[in-house]
């Protein structure tokens, strides 16, 4: 599909928009529909589109497997880390009240970080899934 100019141009215009939309869904999830799970999947969809049009080899240079593996673990560590930090600050595991001076603010920070962790891991796992399946096929 790399030789089709229409596909190439449209993909290059669409990918930044998809990434931007994913970030909007991620960070606006407190006020409207959205959150880490959806944002992660949409973020991954941009990379999958790139891999479909430009080939998995090109996609692997954009996100090298070593980076992908690290990032996958990073999201989960962030989530569990927020829980541990709240525990160290004197409240219960995953109870965000202690993260700031007042409980409401603490909850906001906690939910923001946890959703970010969810988004990172989900996006990385979805990209991994696609690259693992598509990389199995012999590319021309």
């Amino acid at each position: 599909m790399r030789d089709n100019p229409v596909l190439r141009v449209v993909t290059k215009i669409a990918i930044p928009l998809i990434l931007l939309f994913a970030l909007y869904v991620q960070f606006h999830g407190d006020y409207g529909p959205g959150g880490g799970f959806q944002a992660g999947v949409i973020f991954a969809a941009a990379f999958i589109l790139y891999a479909l049009v430009f080939g998995t080899r090109a996609a692997r240079t954009v996100v090298p497997p070593a980076v992908l593996r690290t990032v996958t673990a990073l999201g989960l560590i962030l989530f569990a880390g927020v829980g541990t930090v709240s525990q160290l600050l004197g409240s219960q595991f995953l109870d965000y009240d202690a993260l700031a001076d007042n409980p409401l603010h603490g909850q906001h920070i906690g939910i923001f970080l946890v959703e970010l962790g969810v988004g990172i891991t989900v996006a990385a796992v979805m990209i991994t899934l696609f690259l693992a399946f598509a990389g199995r096929q012999d590319e021309p």
């Binding site: 999830g29 407190d30 006020y31 409207g32 529909p33 959205g34 959150g35 880490g36 996958t72 673990a73 999201g75 989960l76 989530f79 569990a80 829980g83 595991f93 995953l94 965000y96 409980p103 409401l104 909850q107 906001h108 906690g110 939910i111 946890v114 959703e115 962790g117 969810v118 891991t121 989900v122 796992v125």
Partner: peptide, 29 residues
């Protein structure tokens, strides 16, 4: 009063049922 975020689904997902979500994320991982 407790959280102050309008999207209740996000609130329950990330705060009230944080353990649940942590477990789900571990499954995905």
């Amino acid at each position: 009063e407790e959280i102050g975020i309008p999207n209740v689904v996000t609130v329950v997902l990330a705060s009230y049922r944080g353990y649940d979500t942590l477990g789900e994320l571990t499954v995905i991982f």
